[in-house]
Each structure stands twice: as structure tokens, then as C-alpha cells.
Write a protein that binds this DNA or RNA. Structure first.
Lengths: 217, 217
DNA sequence: ATTTAGAACGCACGATCGTGCGTATTGATT
DNA sequence: AATCAATACGCACGATCGTGCGTTCTAAAT
């Protein structure tokens, strides 16, 4: 009920550019402050426009929060998911998902670790549309891991005694837990121990083993 | 500079009772809202006293936040740590720590899962005394797991190929990650999969195996 | 019975929050 | 050139935040 886009023959939505620019700052601010603590004033100041101008771009704070989630998902897809999809399916791709996640949370540009882990624990206790949306995103990420693990099992790349669903689950919660703990201590040993766990379950062979330039997207 | 306790021969601090009563509500509210989103007004209303009365009890909001952390630690110690310390050391105790944690986050009285996991991701990106305190608490919990795993290794209760430090780390981050994910979906399968992981690494034998009444403390 | 220190209160302050309104500015369409 | 819808702005509103101040009440110490 917020947007009233009456009849208009040819609208030139130049505001899209502004929204993108704002969201670029917003995802970083929201990861630190939290989705609800993020204030329009500070975001406006960080993005270089007025508070009311920012408000008008999104219509309401909840719409802004949704847009931030969508933008964060795009970034996560670009930084973690897509590079892994360029790796051969099965165990190597599953490993690439996990290593991509570890590299992602270790980036200095993200002082609050994984955006979705941060937001999940923020809104997890408060039911509502935002929590549902975050839950959906998390499920999709879990599906990526599970599908890769299943394919790895089909290809005979796993220890036979292990259920691929169980393996994908354990890796997923380990990554999330490591993100939280790494957030507190910033101890590289945390990332190394997760990599050891990966090596234990998926065998050796890091991301530097296969040249990544002969892959067709 | 907040407390000015001049010279007084015999003070009867009755306020301790009030503080305890307030903190009882505060830890639950803070787990849902977050340590910083928690407002004095709502907490005062929930605890049944005035806002200024509540403020006077703690001196400042930061002091209140510290008191909440201390209280949450007491609850966690009472609900998770102490029962596990009544279990024979080594693998059974390590298992009791993990199962106690799972039971703890599954409790309906805690709609936001583990207090410390929630607060960790809230303040993890913002350095300061509160984050340092939470980090210290997390380290102590990790030490409990690590010491139990080490003792289990000494007792020959682990698969020899496995480093006890690595085992303790993996279990710890799995618990934290499972807390976050369970917060989002409330799917009992999540808890079951963690229990499967425990069974895989520590063998069968749940908490109901050994009678817990013949234990000294 | 008087004294007295702390507990709890009402009240108000400055700051900041999300939001609505009125108004220039802009660039594409007519 | 004129029209018009969308952008971005300044400003102000009610609400809520953390905090300080002064008063009343209560119970232990004298």
C-alpha cells in the first residue's frame, strides 16, 4: 500500500541508480549495526543524501530492509556462490562453497562477518516477514550444500559410511558457527580448523589445485 | 564515577533482591531484542517498576548490560555446565555438555536460542568492553569443551586419528551454528542431526544411560 | 522516638528515531 | 516551449530513547 504507481506511459526510473548506490553502503552498515538498528539518518549521511530523500527512495523502513536483504543476497551470490558454480560438481564444488564462505567472512570489508548469519540471529526471535525472508535465503544456501554433497555421493567422492545430507548439514552449521566465533576473536586459527575439517571430510585439494581459467562459467 | 558509596557503617543492600528480579526478566528480553535494543522503558514495564527506579538500580545502561551478561552466564552455568559436571569426565561429559546445550536452546522459555550466540553476533562487529566480555565468556565455554575432549583422548575414548582440540572445536561451532539455524526454522531435525554428529564422534550412550543420582556434585 | 541512607518514584531534558508534507529541480514527452 | 512525473530536499511532527534531579517512602541504626 506504500507505492502508488498510477498510470504512466514511460517512466524513466533514474532512482534505480541511487538505490544501488545507497544499498552499497547499506549492506555494510546493516551488517554492523543490524537491520533494525540501522537508522535512516546515519545511512543517509554515509550515502551522501538527505534523510527524506533516502526515505522517499524506499517508501518505508521495512521496504528498505527488504531491499538490503535482496542486495546482500546478490553480493553473496556474486562472491561465494557463482565462483563455486565454476568448479566441477560434486565434492570439489562443495569444497568451493565452503572455502568461498570462509574467504568471504575473512574479508576486512565485512567487519561483521556473514550478513545473513548476523541478521538471522537478530530477527530469529521475532517472527515477521523479514525473518521469513531470511529463513528462505538460508534454506536456499543449505540446498546448495546439500545438492553438492548428494552429487558427490553419486560420484563416489565421499566416504561411503557418510550420509551426504548429514555431511552438508554439518558443514553448513560449522560455517555459520565459525562465522560467529570468528567475529568475536578474529583468530585465524578458527578458519584453519574449519579448513582442516573440510580436508578431513572432502580430502585434500584446495581451490588452487585446478586452474580456474579453463572453466566455462 | 557512577557509584558514590561514601562512608557508611552498615548498609543493607536490599536492592540486590530487586536487581535479581529485574535481571530475571532482562535476560529473556535481551535475548529477543538484543542487548542494545533493550529499552529501559520496556524492561521496567516487564519487571513491574518505574523507569527511573530501574535506572537507579544499575546506574547506567552499560552497567545494566554487564549485569545481564553476568546473570545470563549464571543461568547458562546452572542449566548446562553444572549438570554436565556431574557426569563422569571424558567423553561422557563432553557429550553431556553438547546435549545440555541442545536441550537449552530447544527450551520454549528461550525464544531466542542461546543468549551468548545471539549477543555475540550483535556486538561482534562493534569493539568495546561488552564485546570483550562476551568473547571471554565464549572462550571459557570453548575451554570446557576442549578440556573434556583432551581428557577423553587421555582415557582412550576417542578415535585415535582425531585431535581432541579439533574435535572440541568442531562440536563447539556446530552447536553455535545449529543454534542460529534452529532459531530461523525451529525444525527439530536440526537438533537431531547434531545429535547424530555427536553419536558419530562420541559413540552411543545418551544422557539416560548412567543414573545421575549417584554422582557427587 | 529520632535519625538516616538507600529504594523507588514522577517529571522533564535533549537527542534521535521513522514518517509525512510542501516545494524546488530535473529531464523526458508532448 | 510547455507539460508532467519523478527526484531530492528542508522542515516539523509525535514517539521513544537514556539520563539527571528532586521528592517520598521505608526500614535499619541510634
Amino acid at each position: 500500500m506504500t507505492s502508488s504507481k498510477r498510470k504512466c506511459k514511460r517512466i524513466r526510473i533514474d532512482g534505480e541508480k541511487s538505490r544501488e548506490r545507497v544499498l552499497e553502503s547499506a549492506i555494510r552498515l546493516a551488517a554492523i549495526e543490524g537491520l533494525e538498528r540501522l537508522s535512516l539518518s546515519r545511512l543517509a549521511e554515509a550515502a551522501g543524501l538527505s534523510k527524506s530523500g533516502l526515505f522517499g527512495l524506499f517508501g518505508s523502513k521495512e521496504d528498505l530492509q527488504f531491499a538490503i536483504i535482496v542486495k546482500a543476497r546478490e553480493v553473496f551470490t556474486h562472491e561465494v556462490v557463482m565462483p563455486a558454480l565454476a568448479v566441477p560438481e560434486g565434492a570439489p564444488r562443495l569444497r568451493a562453497f565452503c572455502e568461498g564462505y570462509l574467504d568471504h567472512i575473512a574479508l576486512r570489508e565485512w567487519p561483521s562477518g556473514c550478513f545473513f548469519a548476523s541478521v538471522a540471529s537478530e530477527v530469529g526471535g521475532r517472527p515477521g516477514p523479514i525473518r521469513d525472508r531470511v529463513a528462505t535465503e538460508q534454506k536456499q544456501w543449505a540446498s546448495l550444500l546439500r545438492d553438492s554433497a548428494t552429487r558427490a555421493a553419486e560420484l563416489g567422492q565421499l566416504r561411503s559410511k557418510e550420509s551426504p545430507q548429514q555431511l552438508a548439514f554439518e558443514l553448513g552449521v560449522m560455517l555459520t558457527g565459525a562465522d560467529i566465533v570468528y567475529l568475536l576473536h578474529r583468530d585465524p586459527e578458527i578458519l584453519e580448523r574449519v579448513r582442516s575439517a573440510l580436508e578431513d571430510r572432502l580430502g585434500k585439494g584446495g581451490s588452487s589445485e585446478n586452474g580456474s581459467e579453463n572453466s566455462s562459467v
